[in-house]
Design a protein around this nucleic acid. Structure first.
Lengths: 227, 227
DNA sequence: CTATTAACTACCTAAACGGGTGATGTTTTA
DNA sequence: TAAAACATCACCCGTTTAGGTAGTTAATAG
């Protein structure tokens, strides 16, 4: 199995090495990465920059397939920077490589366009695999990061909507209130009298256990009672 | 390197093999997985079930560390099933292994408590690594899945909150309205007179371009103006 | 056929609200 | 130091809302 893998890598390498650029301010790390990539078959290091500003200036000379970027950088930080890189080179793949593993930064980096997120302690082989995985359309992440992404993922949706037994008609009415209607305009919208609207709103309030239009609107929106 | 890895696996194996159960209706796949896991050092197959119903009944006899579950199952489907498993055995890890790679199912499975999501074409070695990765607190995903998770992640991104130049004070006030306060109780909360509150609310309405409390509340919630 | 119920309408009152205008001080700025 | 900006409060007035009671019609069920 190892042989076939190596063979596969070599043929791919011969065909077309993965052009990689590095953005990292610490000299030892930057040079280490550059060597690793430069001396591995199937990969080519097209640039190693100390800052986003430097990258912006020089990266155009040889646009890489993948950028390996740190987050903590002097001047413009990595997250801001990759946002700009993605705008200029939308097809370019971006992997973050950083010591930060807080939810905030992971979230921001991925939303800014990062295709993967690796921690600095990623072993060299895994890093090279990640580059290839990214080129193949994957999204390599360190295990801890993947774990956090999924955790964040769960947090975003779960408000398991409570059920207040609202009838379709009551829901339609509630939507109108959410859209800023008052009793009068809502009545016209529903082609019924204002008194009818008032009557049903009372029932909605009872069901939702609220005592004003804005409380009802807040509850409807917070608990996703609409749609 | 291979030697150290093997050694490491063996020591871990000796210490404590990873107890794995399989839930999969297709006989060949189920038995294949069971063999793979059963005959690999460091892993132990504690059960192989054809349906969730069977798993519920028999899994208690020897609760595994990890469950490998299909999604398409006769009777209760895998997603519903793992939700129940997670309730009964919260510490149990769950990996989906399925042919489905649609956003919907990935999303649902992860929200239902899956710790990872593998496609059926995952090579055996990678599958075993995934089991270990899960036990080590990671969230193994096939590259395509990771890619989709990140794509979904970006889509959920809060709709770039518009800025209405609300002052901290105005935001505090808006929060009170969202929480169902009226002018009077809000005034008490802010330790100021009702007239002051009315005054500031007017400004909030101007800034948000609305004309009622509920419109303001709706806008604040929809556009995430708070926090 | 009568009782019941659902769906809608009506009216009433007190409270809350929205939109004005304007008066104080206090702080910042020019 | 004078002017401008800000924060706080006050009153007015017409409209909207909340909550209560009650009447009409039409369909349903016993």
């Amino acid at each position: 199995m190892l042989d076939t893998l190596t063979l596969k890598n070599m043929t791919e390498a011969t065909k077309k090495p993965i052009k990689t650029a590095i953005i990292e301010d610490q000299d030892d790390i930057r040079e280490g990465l550059a060597s690793l990539i430069g001396f591995t078959d199937g990969f080519k290091c097209t640039g190693a920059y100390k800052s986003m500003e430097e990258a912006f200036e020089k990266i155009r000379r040889d646009v890489p397939d993948v950028v390996l970027s740190d987050i903590g950088l002097p001047g413009m930080d990595g997250i801001q920077g990759i946002k700009i890189l993605k705008e200029r080179y939308p097809q370019m793949l971006i992997l973050m490589i950083t010591v930060y593993d807080d939810d905030e930064r992971i979230f921001d980096a991925l939303c800014a366009g990062a295709n993967g997120y690796l921690l600095k302690r990623t072993p060299p082989m895994r890093l090279l695999e990640s580059l290839r995985e990214a080129v193949d359309g994957g999204s390599p992440m360190s295990p801890e990061v993947a774990s956090k992404v999924i955790k964040l993922f769960r947090e975003i949706r779960p408000p398991e909507r409570a059920d207040y037994d609202l009838t379709p008609h009551e829901i339609r009415l509630l939507k109108l209130l959410v859209d800023g209607h008052n009793y009068n305009t809502a009545a016209k919208e529903l082609k019924s009298s204002i008194n009818t609207v008032k009557f049903y709103i009372k029932r909605v309030y009872e069901k939702l256990q609220v005592h004003s239009k804005s409380e009802a609107v807040a509850k409807a929106l917070k608990e996703r009672l609409l749609e």
